[in-house]
């Protein structure tokens, strides 16, 4: 019996009919495991994991995707995706991913790296992976400090930002300016897609998903390396509530790290 034919009292007495008629708008993506994540309440890592999983599901590439996990808060990322995964030494995910992709060129390989991993100790690896034009997808999560080790200053820390190792705020005369790594990488011919997105609002999260999809398409279509930098909140180390932390991303990080596409390969431009 169709739900439209039922009167409210009938629905109340036969809720299984109503349940069967429900249209699923959102459910957990297949590319995520059932494991509970270890991330702090309100951390954007969980959102970004979910976006990657949704893109993997929608592209239908789960069975041939290989993840390379970083060192940092996301060090256990291999527990959370239902894809094969490897764990790289600190900053070396692009080097490890290069090896995997070259040995198994039909696989889809992505790295998931934080700013302490990619923009500091791993700068060399990501720059040369881009210079070689490796067919990889790089998800670069920028939360402006080293989260896992207790909130120390990173190359991406904002000018004046207080961290445990810059208690008076980052002084640009001593510690220099934040590193805009995605803009730098966008200059390189081997990079097919470079963009920066944020997670501070539902609309921005949806845009981030689109960018992740394009970064995967750049690899699938053999155009070059795709990198998406995603501004992420760190409520614990910023000493803010989850909502205040999203406001910090919007008000403090986005002015320093402007959102947008820095490079879109012309074969992807129609979809951007």
């Amino acid at each position: 019996m169709a739900i439209a034919e039922l009167t409210p009292p009938q629905i109340a007495s036969r809720p299984e009919v109503a349940l069967a008629a429900m249209q699923v708008v959102y459910k957990r993506p297949e590319a995520l495991t059932e494991a509970y994540t270890h991330y702090c309440p309100g951390c954007s890592h969980g959102v970004i994991h979910r976006l990657i999983a949704e893109v993997i599901d929608e592209l239908g590439i789960r069975e041939r995707t290989i993840a390379v996990a970083p060192v940092g808060c996301a060090v256990l990322a291999y527990e959370y995706f239902t894809v094969d995964a490897a764990e790289a030494a600190h900053g070396r995910a692009p080097a490890m991913a290069t090896g995997i992709k070259r040995v198994l060129p039909d696989r889809i390989v992505f790295t998931y790296q934080g700013d302490g991993d990619l923009a500091s100790i791993g700068t060399n690896e990501i720059v040369h992976a881009c210079a070689r034009g490796e067919l990889l997808t790089v998800i670069f999560v920028n939360n402006s400090l080293y989260g896992m080790t207790g909130g120390q200053m990173a190359p991406t820390t904002l000018p004046g930002q207080v961290t445990t190792s810059s208690p008076y705020g980052r002084d640009i005369r001593q510690q220099g300016w934040p590193l805009h790594i995605t803009e730098m990488l966008a200059m390189m011919p081997g990079v097919a897609y470079a963009a920066r997105r944020s997670t501070h609002a539902p609309a921005e999260i949806r845009k981030a998903k689109k960018a992740i999809e394009l970064a995967f398409r750049a690899q699938i279509e053999g155009l070059g390396l795709g990198i998406v930098e995603i501004l992420s909140s760190c409520p614990t180390n910023w000493g803010l509530s989850p909502m205040e932390a999203l406001a910090f991303v919007r008000d403090k990080m986005v002015p320093v790290y402007p959102l947008g596409d820095f490079k879109v390969h012309q074969a992807l431009a129609a979809r951007a």
């Binding site: 629905i11 959102y26 539902p202």
Partner: peptide, 30 residues
């Protein structure tokens, strides 16, 4: 599904009804 979009821990499964129904009865089963 805005809750599902912002949720870092994927706790939500979101449903829509073909036409409005009494929520508590449906949730009792769900």
């Amino acid at each position: 599904a805005v809750c599902a979009v912002v949720c870092p821990d994927v706790v939500f499964t979101v449903y829509r009804f073909p036409q409005p129904v009494r929520t508590p009865a449906v949730r009792a089963v769900a």
